[in-house]
Design a protein around this nucleic acid. Structure first.
Lengths: 333, 333
DNA sequence: ATAATTTGTTTAAACGTTTAAACTTGTTTA
DNA sequence: TAAACAAGTTTAAACGTTTAAACAAATTAT
């Protein structure tokens, strides 16, 4: 039978023969210098014995703190999301915080809605992976003064708080690495989108090539999410047709790499003409490919940690401080 | 500047020139037959205008309901987890519930801890993917009468609430399908574990073969999580060595299939000797493989939906009812 | 010996809702 | 014409904490 009346402060007070207030003080470690050690001991013992669990609602009502933060993801089923979630969760555990998770499915309305829902649940702060065209709602959030931090994605020239990967550096360093190994004709496969972090990746590729004096006419493929597979395939075909000396392909996301791999295996790029593959983001399926795949590994753990730490300091009163952190990852493989 | 004093019932009452109680009644749709329509209208209008958001703590304190359920996953980064999460989330949205997510990383202590944390956060119910050897803590939960339901995994011969895939059927039907297509020598790659649902998959394979009079001596590979790659490779090698007529491989999880694919591409199983591949669970990387991969698709959406619906009815008072639902998925590809 | 301070504890208000019960005022019934 | 009822609204207690302020007793200072 459920409904075993929850034990509360009152019960402990009775058991230990003291007032409710004293129990609260002891259990929260307040006024420790004033309270007689034996009394404190008696109270703690009683709390332990009765298996006291504070009532979250009552506590929250008084303190206005939920010890919960809201995490707004763009797509929960994306491996990237889950890894960043894990990083955040790990760090949050250190701070005794919990996490409410929501997913926008790249939909701006859902983003606004989730922020509302989370705030009405009194989360203490928000970590957000903003969707495309969500500058307006983020601006509102920013101006409200509510503690938040963007992660992974950001916007051009804004005063928002964010912790992101150096997206320019991802492709810039990857491209330079390829060039250093003698590759001169590199195809770049990316997404057609106005998400700022993706356009930064494109810029990284372009500038690395320019620096090396490499012509990139018709070397860039921009595929739309709706027809990813088809457009990637067609794109690679085009490049190959135009440049018989194509010797590397750089993919700006793991999803694109997935499409590319399909193509690469089918046409045996690794044997026929040693076209090297490189990607931004890692994925567990890379090792399916017979020849090694290099990739840029985003510093997710660091990003998660930084984001949480910033949020904690913001929540704990440092209202005015802002953060705009761009961290670098490294090439692997 | 943050701290724009939250608007509360009191403010609306003032604005609409009525008592706080009446505001509460109107906003919660109580006593609608008694309240003058114009007053109700005035109150609703004021609430809207002031952008009232009820205080979650105060509400919860009175009603003892959080409209939140806790979801305990085994491994957040596993695609399977995220898909089931999405299914649950979708259904929960229909009921205006939110979801607190935690991950045990297959660790029994963490499971116990998460249940405690969630309950102290006053979640109204729990959906749990139990870890190995967690019968004890689940038994305690069950006996406490708290609303919960296991999902995906379950235990042999227990009275617990669960909604699971018919794991026996996964491999039984998959094997039968292979046999029907003329395959007579099938290798089965599975995990070495005592998780009940995995052992059910083994049983499915065995019984399907027996039914067809197929000898399966040395046809089963059981790999440990720690050395998955290596053991899968070695296992397949062994089977191939013993049976030159091997004509299909059945993998009991997508992770195993990932290892298998690596092997299959490297040794060109699809050309050389037309060894067909089949898996339980789908994964986005299957289409990398040059020849089609079949798989058993678990009815995740259905499972999530059933689990939530059961939990809702349990929470809404139907304390005594239990559920033990075994749903079937289908072969795809 | 009295005042001031320290030590240890209690009192009581507050947080923002919900909800049973009470209270008006107006209308019907006998 | 008083009693009963109905319609519409308010009063006030409760939920389980936290915390400032008050209090009592013991100790120290003057």
């Amino acid at each position: 039978m459920y409904k075993k009346k929850k034990v509360q402060l009152k019960d402990i007070a009775q058991e230990a023969n003291v007032s409710v207030a004293l129990v609260s003080y002891v259990l929260n470690g307040r006024h420790t210098n004033r309270i007689k050690p034996e009394t404190a001991e008696r109270i703690k013992e009683a709390a332990m014995r009765l298996n006291y669990q504070p009532n979250y609602f009552a506590k929250g009502l008084k303190t206005q703190k939920s010890y919960t933060i809201g995490l707004v993801l763009a797509d929960l089923t994306n491996p990237f999301s889950t890894q960043i979630t894990r990083a955040i969760e790990n760090e949050l555990n250190n701070h005794q915080y919990n996490i409410l998770i929501g997913s926008t499915d790249e939909n701006g309305d859902k983003l606004r809605n989730l922020i509302d829902v989370f705030r009405s649940r009194q989360v203490d702060g928000l970590i957000i992976l903003p969707t495309e065209n969500s500058e307006k709602v983020i601006t509102e959030l920013h101006e409200s003064g509510f503690p938040y931090v963007l992660i992974d994605r950001y916007f051009r020239d804004t005063a928002f708080n964010f912790v992101v990967n150096d997206n320019y550096f991802t492709t810039f360093s990857a491209t330079k690495r390829l060039i250093k190994r003698g590759k001169r004709k590199i195809g770049f496969i990316t997404l057609k989108t106005n998400l700022f972090h993706i356009s930064e990746r494109k810029r990284g590729f372009i500038e690395a090539c320019e620096e090396a004096g490499i012509d990139i006419t018709d070397c860039i493929v921009e595929a739309t999410l709706e027809q990813l597979d088809k457009e990637v395939r067609a794109g690679i075909n085009n490049i190959k047709q135009k440049y018989s000396n194509l010797d590397a392909l750089l993919f700006s996301t793991d999803n694109l790499m997935l499409c590319g791999l399909q193509y690469a295996i089918k046409y045996k790029l690794y044997v026929e003409n040693r076209i090297e593959l490189m990607a931004v983001d890692e994925a567990r399926f890379y090792n399916i490919y017979p020849s090694p795949i290099q990739y840029y590994k985003q510093p997710l753990a660091e990003m998660g940690q930084k984001a949480v730490q910033f949020l904690m300091s913001k929540i704990e009163g440092n209202k005015s401080q802002t953060i705009q952190e761009i961290v670098k990852g490294k090439l692997v493989g």
